[in-house]
């Protein structure tokens, strides 16, 4: 399966010149940026903020009651959303005062089983937003500095950093498209993308810059290793996503684990974006760079 993917990708890379090769990921990068800009213009944040960042209460219970009857039951509270998955219902409430909060929680704990509650104050949510933005920026800058220290040359380093940036932007845009809200879990996933995405880029750059042989040969060999790496990670994440998201379809005794589901789906998309960015964007920049500097290349 992945051998087929690698070969198709390899021949695609060989057949197209650097400009053509870079065009596709750059176009997608621009589209992703537009999606984020559009979301920013309409909501004030580049991604849709989840309950943890806005403040509110999430209550998930095991119940056979219908959505309508639950809506009636909790009509006195600022309910935003009710979703049913298997034998569980997840309800989202907006911020409310302490007394109402107390009431709601006693109500939920008293009448249902298998209760999960998560409540965040709006003020704390706002400070969490800042922390999340800072975390992503700090991670990214830290990664960029490290990459420059490792390669010590401008073009290969910037290629890795741009690929990683594009991975995150595309993953974030994807969240907007399929309606995944930013939660602590998805922030963790975005940070993890920074960590994961550079793995294959570092491999590619090292092979191409430090190994004997033509750049194209080295790209091919790096691709064989790199695509295997990404597909193994994808395999682990897809399994995690399926188990945490859809296992309730197999048995009603199982339930969704939102945290794991969110982390895995965002990572999956980030890695798919990374396949493209590493083997088209980074590869084209690197191929252009080594061809230009062919004579001065270091030997292994």
């Amino acid at each position: 399966m992945e051998v087929g993917l690698t070969e198709r990708l390899d021949s695609f890379v060989r057949k197209h010149n650097n400009r053509q090769l870079a065009a596709i990921p750059l176009a997608i990068f621009v589209i992703a940026l537009l999606i984020l800009a559009f979301t920013f213009a309409s909501t004030g944040a580049p991604v849709k903020l989840g309950m943890e960042f806005k403040g509110g209460t999430m209550i998930s219970v095991a119940t056979e009651e219908s959505v309508q009857s639950l809506e009636e039951r909790f009509v006195d509270y600022p309910i935003n959303d009710i979703r049913q998955t298997g034998s569980r219902v997840i309800m989202q409430f907006g911020p409310m005062n302490d007394e109402m909060q107390h009431d709601l929680i006693s109500n939920a704990v008293g009448s249902y089983t298998s209760v999960e509650i998560n409540q965040i104050g709006p003020v704390y949510g706002t400070s969490l937003q800042k922390q999340a933005v800072n975390a992503v920026i700090i991670s990214f800058i830290g990664m960029a500095i490290l990459i420059f220290l490792i390669f010590k040359t401008f073009v290969p380093s910037i290629a890795v950093v741009v690929s990683a940036l594009s991975d995150i932007i595309i993953a974030a845009a994807f969240m907007n498209v399929v309606g995944i809200e930013l939660s602590l879990g998805t922030v963790a996933a975005l940070l993890m993308i920074i960590g994961y995405s550079v793995d294959s880029d570092i491999l590619l750059n090292t092979r191409v810059l430090k190994r004997r042989g033509t750049p194209q040969e080295n790209i091919t060999s790096a691709m064989h290793t790199g695509v295997t790496m990404t597909t193994t990670t994808l395999a682990a994440l897809i399994v995690m996503y399926l188990v945490s998201t859809y296992s309730y379809l197999l048995s009603s005794s199982l339930s969704q684990i939102t945290l794991l589901s969110n982390i895995s789906i965002v990572l999956i998309f980030g890695l798919v974006a990374d396949l493209m960015n590493t083997w088209m964007l980074n590869t084209s920049i690197l191929r252009w760079y080594v061809t230009k500097n062919g004579a001065r290349r270091r030997k292994a």
Binding site: Q131, N134, M143, V187, M192, I194, V198, I202
Partner: peptide, 17 residues
């Protein structure tokens, strides 16, 4: 190199939220 970037990328999470 890959491990160092992962560790670096993850470290802000230790303190966040």
């Amino acid at each position: 190199a890959a491990a160092a970037t992962t560790i670096l990328a993850m470290s802000p999470l230790v303190f966040m939220g």
